[in-house]
Design a protein around this nucleic acid. Sequence first.
DNA 1: AACGGATCGTTGGATATCCTACCATCCCCG
DNA 2: CGGGGATGGTAGGATATCCAACGATCCGTT
Lengths: 175, 175
Amino acid sequence: MSQPARKARRMAEAPAAPRLALAHEAPAGQLPVQLGPLGVQLGFLLRLAQEAAFDAFAARTGQAALRPGRYSILVIIAANPGISQTALGAAAGRDKSTLTPALADLERRGLIRRDRPPQDRRSYALTLTEVGRQVLEGLRHHAAAHDAALEALVGPADRAAFVAVLRRIIQGIGA
Amino acid sequence: MSQPARKARRMAEAPAAPRLALAHEAPAGQLPVQLGPLGVQLGFLLRLAQEAAFDAFAARTGQAALRPGRYSILVIIAANPGISQTALGAAAGRDKSTLTPALADLERRGLIRRDRPPQDRRSYALTLTEVGRQVLEGLRHHAAAHDAALEALVGPADRAAFVAVLRRIIQGIGA
DNA sequence: AACGGATCGTTGGATATCCTACCATCCCCG
DNA sequence: CGGGGATGGTAGGATATCCAACGATCCGTT
């Protein structure tokens, strides 16, 4: 849900070679493209890393129904049965309007249920169906493998430090 | 260019508090939302970190003309006068079709020039104008400040290690 | 009991992305 | 020299995002 659907359409293929080399190899006889200061700027590298990671996860999951964005929705609903759309959006880091078509799609596929709690007819209580649990189980394997692949690159000994840095960025960069 | 224009519209305001707390604080009397395994999954954290960093940079720059995506385009063109659109897209990690409207806009604003090299009338040679250089100069200050803010969170002593991890992810996650 | 402010979720619109197909151009090979 | 494959860039379409505004509902205050 956080990226366009290119990954869904590309997933039937084996993952492509990385789209970008930081030290750009140009065609024979040409100089490589210089990135200037971008090559060491943390924001730019974060973007490239995130997109590469996202692409790789999408490659693993392979089907539109199992796109990374849907995965995080299913995980959060599974962990919080009865959660509202507003709370889900906040937890997933997504605008509530972004969730409207995504949840409609998951409901249509039979992966979740949206019930009107009698005490608040404005909102929905979201829960996974049995089918949804099964689909999520399949996704968890992909997610675990993806996480292991990322951890291999980070270095297992450095994982905790890396996570701590990401959390500090998440919590602190807007201040 | 890597994210929707929400940031452009929001930039006139002071940056909002972070949209997401990893340990979600719920309304009084409610339990916080549980992230389940997402809270420690590297892919999810990378996404949140990247979006938070992007939001923060967009907040600094403030105007649509100076959006982060345009910044990377200007930096790369500045470092590679005469670069083609195809090479620029590859360096920026963007599809060439994504660049078409962005470059048209930059040209319209007088920040770049697109010339037809006589030896290859299929392509364009992209260069910054004097106005483009000036706009880029202003952006560099924002970018440097943003990078410093990120470095403060990463920890100056850990910056090189963090960059190395991001590069390994960029280069290696798709393999 | 009624009113006004707040909230939940949806809709419409805008922006940004990529993929595929196409046209114009280039270049290499037979 | 000509043809065919490749390349540069654009257009159309699909997907995903957020913002603002709206209708329905909730709740607190008077």
